[in-house]
Simulated scan of single mutants.
Amino acid sequence: MKRTIILLFLSFMFGNCKTNNTKVKSTTTKNSLSERTVFSDHKIIDYLLEKEGEDQECEITFQEKDGVYKYFSSNCSHHDNHSVTFSIVDQETDFNNDGTTDYLISRVSEGMLGGNANTNAEYIYLLVNAKAEVIQEHSILRYAPFSYNYLELTSYNKGVLKAKVNQNHRTLYTYGSQVESYYIKELKMTFSFVDGLLYEDSYLTDCDLAKMKDKSIFKKDIKNVSRETSIDMHNYTQIQTESLKNSTVNIYASLQGCDNLNLELDIVRAHNANSRQITHTQLALKELDTLILKTRFKSLIEKIKKQIESGSAETSFYDEKQKNKKIEGKDFVIYVYPKKNEEAYTLNLSLILNNNPLQEHNWDITSRLNENNSQPVEEDDDF
């Protein structure tokens, strides 16, 4: 089904741009969103609409009224009609103090039946340059059908957002006596910018990982590395994501946590004549050597390597037909599996340093649970 895009922008003011005596006509285009007429005064909204992507099986209608921007996905052949509304909460605060005012956007997506993937809401912080180009983006999830938490705004003033946070009953893993414990408490959280990055205030004061001055994963002298620092949308801790890409290997890495360090590494490498002849365990040891050379976590990865070499790690096929292998030891698990047609293989390493055993689940981390603010909660045997 061909889709028709109708762009209807009524006259309005955006930032410091004047639109007096300007006539804006409705514009109809076909095919991709990139073919829409782009108005220089509307770069931020245009950026957000482009991120929404396109659906070739729907008709898309864009509207603006009283500073609220909305697009409707209708007459879809897959019957998944939905709408997305953008509201500008703040366009006058310079979050990163670079001399250019930034944006806080409220995004609300409403899907059919209220329970599908198109039903969600979030706050989006957009840091822009003098050309209104987005240079950094942070998101705080307000709700989704199966999100961990619900977040409700209580106040906002000049970059400081205060909210109430409750656990989503759909993903609430607690039951029995636990319901009478700290899980029923409503958390009060504050989000603000510090040195150009968005933080939840209790992360900075109550999380051990916040004390780590350098959270970079790859060594600083390694080339072809991209780095991004943001905030986790579920438990509001800082998350560092990095990727290293060259002609022989792609490595994707993330580091996050409150008191417990969680390090994830995905390595995708093309098979060569030698790699096809060695075992999954040998492939894992080979890639651990790569991580020892390229990351800042040399000592931790060396300990993992020693566990595997000594035979203390458990090795098993978790999908023998697909030749997927699992290697598990103290604080880590590694999965090694081939890609399509065995042209490449992927290694996934998950390392968790469990410094606080109370922070096992998402709500434990969100509430910054520790021995000083609660007693350990045990799950009932019967469910």
Rank of each mutant, 00 (worst) to 15 (best):
S106L: 15
T346H: 10
E110M: 11
A284N: 04
I231R: 03
T28F: 11
K219W: 00
S367T: 08
D66V: 02
L113V: 08
N324M: 15
D214P: 00
S230E: 00
I140F: 06
Q63Y: 13
N274P: 02
Q282D: 14
E59H: 14
A273G: 09
Y335K: 12
D46H: 11
Q322V: 05
T37D: 10
Y47I: 07
Q256E: 15
N75A: 11
K305R: 13
Y71P: 00
S230A: 04
K131A: 14
Q277A: 09
E309A: 05
N274K: 15
V179F: 15
E50F: 11
N16F: 12
N355Y: 11
E379S: 10
S32L: 13
H169K: 14
K326T: 09
K188H: 13
Q282S: 10
L244C: 01
S310F: 03
K223P: 10
P376N: 01
C76T: 07
A210G: 02
F332S: 03
L48M: 09
N166L: 13
L161V: 09
Y335Q: 01
Y123L: 12
N116Y: 07
T229M: 12
K286Y: 14
K131G: 05
R142S: 02
D208P: 03
L288A: 02
Q375R: 09
T290Y: 04
Q375A: 10
I267C: 08
G15K: 10
V336W: 06
L347W: 01
V134D: 00
K323T: 11
Y183L: 07
N16L: 12
R107F: 03
R3P: 02
K188T: 10
L204A: 00
L33C: 05
N341E: 15
T154P: 01
G67C: 07
